[in-house]
Write a protein that binds this DNA or RNA. Structure first.
Length: 422
DNA sequence: TCTGGGGTCCTAGGACCC
DNA sequence: TCTGGGGTCCTAGGACCC
C-alpha cells in the first residue's frame, strides 16, 4: 500500500471563487473569524506579497491599493464543499482518512507498472469538473513522505499538481530541497533547534543522530525520522476517531467589560457546544469556561473555571446552568475582555452513559429530555439556527463576531442559492 | 480601534498505591 | 554512611497541526 495526501489549493479562497464567478482571476483573500487576520489567499493575492496570517488592519491599505477582493470566513460554505470533496475522493481509493477540512490521506495500491500518475490525473480532473476546486496530490511510502510530496507538487513547476516521492529516482535530492521548517511536525521552536545544529533540510533531518532527536523531541522525533526513511510509524486512521474534547470560543467584535455580556457570550457558546456534542453522539464529563484580555496589551488577564458533571451530559439546560454558575469565577471588573469560550472534556459515547451508583434517576424524564433536545436540533437544522433559542444569550448581542465581507451560504441555504441571469 | 478557532499528542512532576 | 521498587493516574504546559 502507498499513501497519498490530497488537498485543496488555497481551499477557502477557491470555495469563494467557485460560487462567485466575478472573483475568478481576481486577487482574493479570506479573513479569519471576526475579520481578524488573513487565513487564505489565492495565487494572485500571494503574488502581491500579502503574508499568511497578517492582521487585517495592517494590510488593509495595501489590499485596497492592489484591488484585492476580500471575504469573511464562511464556514457553512467551506464545510459543505469539504463534504462534497471527500465524497468524490472516496470513489478513488481503498481507504480514506479525513485529516482536516481540506485534506485527506488515502491508501492506494500501485498498479503493476507502479505508475500512479494516470490515477492522480484523473482524480484531479474529476474534482475540478465537479467542484471547480484545484487540488494537489502527494504520494509517498508514509504519511510524512506523502506530506512532503504534496508540498513539492505545489512548489515545483511542471508537476501539474502531482508528485510521487516514493518512486522518485532523486528522492534524496528532493528531500534536500525542502527546508527543515517545511517538514510536517517541525514547528517554529524545533526548526530553530535544528538550524542551530546544522540540520537545515529534510535530508539532514532524516540522517541526523537519532539519540539527539530523541533527547530533544522525544518519541515524536524518532517517529518523524523513521517516517522520512519510509518506515510507517503514524498509523492510518480509517474511521473518524471520537473527539476527546470539543471547544467553542470566539473573539468579541469589541472588548466587553460587564458580567452581563460575558454571561450572554458564555451562554451562546455553551448552547452551541451542546449541539456539537449531540451531533457527535457524545456526552461531557467536565465543562470548562475561560476568558481573557488581549495578548497584545501590557496587562494580561486570563482565567478559566471547571466543573465536573455527574452524570455526563449533553443536555443544553444542564450545560448552560453549569457554565452560568461558573461565569462569576472568571469575570473580573473593569478589564477589557476580548475573548471567551467553553470547552467540553472527558467525552464519552452517549450510548454508554455511566450513571452513578448512589444517585436515583428518573428514566422517564431522561427520555423526555432527550426527545426535547432532538426536536430543538431538528427545528434549528430545518428552519435555520436560532429558530428555537435560549433567552440566556439575549436577542441583540453587542459582542458578536464581525463578518463584514460575508458571502452567501450558496450551497446550504435555499434563499442563498446563486441566481444565474442569462 | 484592530492580531482566528479548534484540535491532538507528549512529557514531567506530583500524588498515590502496595 | 545508609532511607525500595515498581507502578498508575492526573494535571499543566509545551509544541504542533490546519
Amino acid at each position: 500500500m502507498t499513501i497519498a495526501l490530497i488537498d485543496g489549493n488555497n481551499f477557502y479562497a477557491a470555495c469563494e471563487q467557485s460560487i462567485d464567478p466575478s472573483l475568478v482571476d481576481q486577487p482574493l483573500v479570506v479573513l479569519s473569524n471576526n475579520d481578524g487576520c488573513i487565513i487564505s489567499r489565492n495565487a494572485e493575492a500571494k503574488a502581491f506579497g500579502i503574508p499568511m496570517g497578517a492582521p487585517f488592519f495592517k494590510v488593509r491599505t495595501k489590499l485596497k491599493q492592489y484591488g484585492v477582493k476580500i471575504r469573511s470566513s464562511n464556514y457553512a460554505l467551506y464545510g459543505d464543499m469539504s463534504e462534497r470533496f471527500m465524497n468524490l475522493i472516496k470513489n478513488y481509493c481503498e481507504e480514506l482518512e479525513i485529516y482536516s477540512i481540506d485534506e485527506a490521506f488515502v491508501n492506494i495500491k500501485r498498479p503493476m507498472n507502479c505508475n500512479l500518475h494516470p490515477w492522480a490525473k484523473e482524480l484531479r480532473t474529476h474534482i475540478y469538473q465537479n467542484l471547480s476546486l484545484p487540488i494537489a496530490i502527494g504520494i509517498g511510502a508514509t504519511k510524512t513522505q506523502a506530506k512532503l510530496a504534496n508540498y513539492l507538487a505545489k512548489k515545483v513547476a511542471d508537476t501539474a499538481g502531482i508528485f510521487d516521492l516514493e518512486i522518485s529516482k532523486h528522492q534524496e535530492d528532493w528531500l534536500e530541497s525542502i527546508a527543515v521548517e517545511n517538514v510536517w511536525g517541525i514547528g517554529h521552536k524545533m526548526a530553530q533547534w535544528c538550524r542551530l545544529r546544522g540540520i537545515n533540510n529534510a535530508l539532514q533531518l532524516r540522517d541526523a543522530p537519532s539519540h539527539e532527536l530523541k533527547a530533544k523531541l522525544g518519541i515524536t522525533g524518532i517517529r518523524l525520522q523513521n517516517e522520512l526513511k519510509g518506515v510507517r510509524c503514524i498509523p492510518f486512521a480509517k474511521y473518524n476517531k471520537a473527539k476527546k474534547e470539543t471547544c467553542v470560543s470566539r473573539s468579541f467584535n469589541k472588548p466587553i467589560t460587564t458580567m452581563d455580556e460575558l454571561r450572554q457570550a458564555i451562554s451562546s457558546y455553551a448552547v452551541r457546544a451542546s449541539e456539537k456534542l449531540r451531533k457527535q453522539n457524545q456526552v461531557a464529563g467536565i465543562i470548562t469556561i475561560f476568558t481573557r484580555t488581549s495578548l497584545h496589551k501590557a496587562t494580561f488577564y486570563s482565567k478559566s473555571a471547571s466543573k465536573r458533571l455527574k452524570p455526563h451530559s449533553n443536555d443544553t439546560s444542564i450545560l448552560l446552568n453549569a457554565s452560568l454558575a461558573l461565569t462569576p469565577e472568571i469575570f473580573k471588573q473593569n478589564l477589557p475582555l476580548i475573548k471567551a469560550g467553553v470547552i467540553m472534556q472527558d467525552l464519552q459515547e452517549d450510548k454508554y452513559l455511566q450513571l452513578h451508583l448512589f444517585e436515583t434517576y428518573n428514566s422517564q424524564s431522561t427520555i423526555q429530555r432527550k426527545v426535547l433536545m432532538q426536536t430543538i436540533d431538528n427545528l434549528n437544522q430545518r428552519y435555520g439556527s436560532n429558530t428555537v433559542r435560549w433567552t440566556a444569550y439575549g436577542t441583540s448581542p453587542t459582542w458578536s463576531m464581525r463578518r463584514k465581507y460575508l458571502s452567501p451560504s450558496a450551497t446550504t441555504r435555499l434563499t442563498d442559492i446563486p441566481i444565474v441571469i442569462s
